[in-house]
């Protein structure tokens, strides 16, 4: 079972290449569908925060609040969005303790990490990597 781990945020330069990569999975530009988010710690001089799903153990906080069961456990660690079940209520966004459930405004549904590791391929600074949990 894999997930993205933030190895060393101090190395992050805030280039957001990872964010662009995540939305590019759909051959789209921008980061409207990204499930990894990089922002400064209150000003670029203070460094950056990288927010991405940690693939919590079952029952994951986001899955626990989903009224329709649209967030299925991924073999005990992390979740999978069953899009047809999701009604777009946004409860999962509020429930995630680290803010790693993002919102896809165009679809009106959450954007959930699929632990593919594509983002890490574009991080030139060794900040994030796909690892076994």
């Amino acid at each position: 079972m894999k997930r993205i781990s933030v190895v060393d945020p101090e190395r992050c330069v805030g280039c957001q290449m990872c964010m662009f990569a995540c939305t590019r999975r759909f051959s789209l530009g921008g980061f409207g569908r990204s499930t990894i988010h990089v922002k400064s710690v209150g000003g670029i001089e203070r460094g950056f925060v990288v927010v991405v799903c940690r693939a919590c153990d079952k029952p994951a906080p986001c899955a626990r609040v989903c009224p329709t069961g649209a967030l299925a456990s991924r073999d005990g660690k992390g979740v999978k969005l069953i899009r047809d079940k999701c009604i777009g209520c946004g409860k999962c966004v509020e429930a995630c303790p680290i803010g790693a459930v993002f919102w896809d405004e165009e679809a009106g549904k959450p954007a959930i990490c699929v632990y593919c590791g594509y983002c890490a391929d574009y991080c030139e600074y060794g900040v994030i990597k796909l690892e076994e949990v």
């Binding site: 330069v13 805030g14 280039c15 957001q16 290449m17 662009f20 670029i44 574009y122 600074y125």
Partner: peptide, 16 residues
């Protein structure tokens, strides 16, 4: 002490 980049730039030329 730190380097930073513009959004969507892998080079990170900003030197702090």
């Amino acid at each position: 002490g730190r380097r930073a980049a513009c959004s969507h730039c892998p080079v990170a030329c900003i030197h702090l």
